[in-house]
Amino acid sequence: MTGAAAANAMFVATILVYAAAMFAYALEYAFDKRAPERSEALMAAGGEGTDGGTFADSPSEAPVSPAAARGAGRIGIALTYLGTAVLAASIITRLIYTGRWPWGNMFEYTVGVALAGMVTWLVLVQAGHVPRRLGLFATFAVTMVLGTSVRVYTEAGPLVPALDSYWIVIHVTAAVVASGILLIGCVFAILHLLKRRLDRRISDGKTARFPLTVAERLPAAAVLERLTFKIHVFAFPLLTFGIFAGAVWAHFAWGRYWAWDPKEVWAFIAWVVYAAYLHARVSGRSARSHAPWLAVLGYAVMLFNLTAVNLVFPGLHSYAGV
């Protein structure tokens, strides 16, 4: 088997392992119906409200016992570690096979984002900032990203001269890592919005129906909101640095540091939207309640820049047209 084939096999294995992990997490998420873990309740105490922990259903009705569900969760996290290790190995194999930094085309870039996202997630779980069962949403998001990357799959090959610079390593690595962290930030923003809507329905005395009832088992809305903010605070300087490094690279490769190439335009837009998110978060109450939407919008712009801009708009960026 050649290095490229091995890398591809590991890539496929990762998707399968993550899918299995997702299933395991789903079991834990659905059936571990006990009061929230201690650490979770405390996390909530750091925020404004506390998680209700109101799981009135009698455990006997559930097809899976809480203990078994927790076991499934442990399997889920183990599979997540395994999948992430295999994904990293796949990228390293590609690196060795091509003899260059593995961010040379859209496929490689997207896979890098998935890895960065999952590592971010595992760090958060390991440090006790998020309960394990939410891995359901992280593995879902990352598997979606990996699935999308298949559509822009490119044979492992050499780089065009413009990409042959150590600035690409700096620029794209920063962009990949920032995008991965922001992916998790976006997941939390969405979870917060879901939970908030559920809370509002309940306080309005209405009953929540299926898609929304999924949010019942989420941590308190305020906890999710704070996590969203912290992740963005962490990722924003990295994104900023990545864009600046890109400008330095553009200076050396194309003779100008900024020329409103479509890729540059959309990076600028994403940055401005995230700056708006941070402003909204720290200014008055009403702006603050809109802030999570800005975080979601920011990631939508990032995704648009990663996919549509490469495929639709002509530009200098080498993967224009993949």
């Binding site: 335009v265 959309w266 401005v272 402003h279 200014s283 008055g284 708009f313």
Partner: peptide, 30 residues
Amino acid sequence: MRTALLLLLALALAAIPGSTFPQRSISPTD
């Protein structure tokens, strides 16, 4: 701060047409 927020979002919006229409500064032939 509210105005700053709105202006930031307006700037993001205003930048979009530059990527959908060809720009003289980049490529007059386009």
